[in-house]
């Protein structure tokens, strides 16, 4: 399949390793990956902070960049939620302005092929095992936009469970917000910190080495506290775990179905 990546502004700038991992997984699965060069931002930060007229101006660029895509894959639950929840009404406003004739129809045609990364794997491709190997204890943070916004359900965890060598531990209060909330984290820094404290307690209680999620914005926030407190616990986007593979010398054994030694190192895409 021809897969177009919408990397999103913050992943492009702050988390390029997530994009690289996503490309790796998609190509490993045999898909042809494209990256439309003129892409920037989905408009979420502006929209959710109240600058909706500014967000509006970002939609035509998105449509132009991804027009005719077979599938648009995005490594961010919140950006996809933004697009699904608000692009239809934003398109209507643009169309009504008279400057963008036909944009409603274009958005309606485009949105059904826009997928969050894990969603693309589980729902569009029907996969759970993507051939990853990651011999570590991992806990998964569901992200509000993944859980409630996109209704990902068990999808991301089903992908993780299929990873060879993984020790997946359920995060307590998995449905509760970590306190990031975009500009909320700086506008209400104190409350955000209090929410984060509870989330970090939960992560530490699992004994996990890695906290994974489908959204680097939550992870940036959780990681920030894990690092400040010198917990030694890392965060990784789901794509990075799925991109991890055995070292070449043991890869053959894995492929041939042999049990992998517990102490072997995985190639981690970071």
């Amino acid at each position: 399949m021809r897969v177009s990546i919408f990397i999103t502004c913050y992943n492009d700038t702050l988390f390029p390793q997530t994009g690289r991992a996503m490309v790796h997984v998609l190509e490993r699965l045999g898909h042809h990956v494209e990256f439309p060069a003129g892409q920037t931002c989905c408009g979420q930060m502006h929209y959710n902070t109240g600058y909706q007229t500014d967000a509006l101006t970002m939609l035509p660029r998105f449509v132009e960049q991804f027009r005719g895509a077979e599938a648009v894959v995005v490594p961010s639950t919140s950006c996809v939620t933004m697009m699904r929840d608000h692009y239809p009404s934003m398109a209507q406003r643009l169309e009504a302005s008279g400057k963008y004739p036909g944009i409603v129809a274009e958005v309606n045609a485009l949105l059904p092929v826009v997928f969050e990364f894990s969603e693309f794997l589980t729902k569009r491709l029907g996969l759970t095992d993507v051939g990853a190997y990651f011999p570590h204890r991992v806990t998964y943070h569901a992200s509000c936009h993944g859980l409630r916004g996109l209704g990902l359900g068990d999808g991301p965890e089903s992908l993780l469970r299929a990873v060879k060598g993984i020790d997946l531990v359920t995060l307590p209060d998995i449905e509760r917000c970590c306190g990031f909330g975009g500009t909320f984290a700086v506008k209400n820094a104190e409350v955000s910190s209090a929410m984060l404290a509870e989330k970090v307690q939960g992560v530490l209680s699992t004994g996990a080495e890695v906290c994974a999620a489908c959204d680097n914005s939550c992870l940036m926030h959780i990681e920030g506290a894990l690092h400040r407190q010198r917990t030694g616990v890392h965060t990784m986007h789901l794509a990075e775990i799925l991109a991890s593979e055995p070292e070449p010398n043991i890869a053959a054994e894995v492929r041939s179905g042999d049990v992998v030694a517990g102490d072997s190192e995985a190639v981690v895409w970071v």
Binding site: L14, A185, V186, K187, N188, A189, E190, S192, S193, L196, A197, M220, H221, E223, G224, A225, H227, R228
Partner: peptide, 9 residues
């Protein structure tokens, strides 16, 4: 507000 309790990569 961010760096009161968090580091930033």
């Amino acid at each position: 507000g961010w760096t009161q309790v968090r580091d930033l990569h």
